[in-house]
C-alpha cells in the first residue's frame, strides 16, 4: 500500500516539477532577455554619446581653426594689403602720367582683394555668427555669393526672427553653408532659395535649388556617395544638435529641410 502511495506521489510530484521547471525557464529567459535589451540600449546610448563627443570636438576644433584663420586674414593679410595699397598710392604720386591708369587699376584690384579677404574673414569667423545671429550670417554669406554673380541666392524669412543658442546656430549655419556649397558644386543650378521659418520655438530652414537633382535611392544606399557629397557629415551634425534633416530631390532640383525644435534650448 505504501509503495502504491509513493508511486502516485512521485507521478504527481513529477508533473508539478515539470510545471515549475517550465515556469522557471520562462521567467529566467524573460528576465535574461530584458537585461540583454537593457544592456544593448546602454551600449547604443554610450556609442551615441561617444559619437556626439567626437563631433563636438570636431566642431570645436573647426571653429577654433576658422577663428584663427579669420583673425590671420583680418589682422595680417588685411594689414599687408593696406600697406600694398598705400605703397601703390605713393608710387602713383611719383609715377609718370602714361602709367597712372595702370597704377590706378592695380590699386582698384588690390582694394577689391582686400575687400574679398575681409568678407571671407567675416564669413568664416564663428565670432561673427555669434554676434550677428544666424539670419544675418546667412544674409552676409548670400550677399557675398550674389556679388560674384554666377549664382543667385534668394533669402526669405517667415515669422519673427529669434536668437537661439549660439553653439546650435553655429552648427545650423555650417549646415546651410555646406548645402549652398553642395548646390553650387554639384547641382549646376542658377538659383538657390533659402527660407527660414520661425514658428513658436521651431525653426525650419529650407535650402532649395533649381539644379539637376540626384537619385534619392542612391543617397540611402551609397555610403561613399553620401560621404562624397557631405551628406553624411550633414546627418551627423543634425544628430548632434538633435534636429531633423530631410532630402527631396528630383528633376526640378533639390530641397533640403532642416527642422529644429528649440524648446528647452532657448538662449
Amino acid at each position: 500500500m505504501q509503495t502504491q502511495v509513493n508511486i502516485l506521489f512521485v507521478v504527481l510530484a513529477s508533473a508539478i516539477f515539470a510545471l515549475l521547471l517550465v515556469a522557471f525557464i520562462v521567467i529566467f529567459l524573460n528576465i535574461t532577455q530584458k537585461r540583454s535589451f537593457k544592456y544593448n540600449e546602454n551600449l547604443l546610448r554610450i556609442k551615441q554619446e561617444y559619437d556626439s563627443a567626437i563631433l563636438n570636438s570636431q566642431i570645436e576644433v573647426q571653429a577654433q581653426t576658422l577663428k584663427e584663420i579669420s583673425e590671420e586674414l583680418h589682422d595680417n593679410v588685411g594689414q599687408i594689403l593696406s600697406s600694398v595699397i598705400l605703397h601703390i598710392k605713393v608710387i602713383g604720386e611719383k609715377a609718370p602720367v602714361n602709367i597712372q591708369k595702370q597704377i590706378e587699376d592695380t590699386k582698384s584690384l588690390v582694394t577689391e582683394i582686400k575687400e574679398q579677404v575681409r568678407h571671407i574673414s567675416r564669413s568664416i569667423s564663428p565670432q561673427h555668427i555669434e554676434n550677428f545671429g544666424l539670419f544675418n550670417a546667412i544674409t552676409y554669406q548670400a550677399d557675398r555669393i550674389n556679388r560674384i554673380g554666377a549664382i543667385k541666392i534668394e533669402l526669405k524669412t517667415e515669422g519673427k526672427e529669434k536668437k537661439y543658442n549660439p553653439r546650435i546656430e553655429l552648427v545650423l549655419f555650417r549646415m546651410v553653408q555646406e548645402l549652398i556649397n553642395n548646390a553650387i558644386k554639384h547641382s549646376e543650378c542658377e538659383n538657390i532659395y533659402v527660407k527660414l521659418n520661425y514658428v513658436n520655438e521651431v525653426l525650419t530652414i529650407s535650402v532649395k535649388d533649381d539644379g539637376k537633382g540626384f537619385d534619392e535611392t542612391e543617397i540611402l544606399r551609397d555610403r561613399q556617395f553620401r560621404d562624397g557629397t557631405g551628406l553624411h557629415s550633414l546627418e551627423n551634425k543634425a544628430k548632434f544638435i538633435n534636429c531633423s534633416i530631410t532630402f527631396n530631390s528630383g528633376e526640378k532640383g533639390t530641397k533640403v529641410t532642416i527642422i529644429k525644435d528649440f524648446e528647452n534650448e532657448y538662449y
Partner: peptide, 12 residues
C-alpha cells in the same frame, strides 16, 4: 515549452 512540459510532466 510544450514538449518539455508534456514529456517531463508525464515521464513518471
Amino acid at each position: 515549452i510544450g514538449v518539455l512540459f508534456y514529456f517531463a510532466g508525464n515521464f513518471f
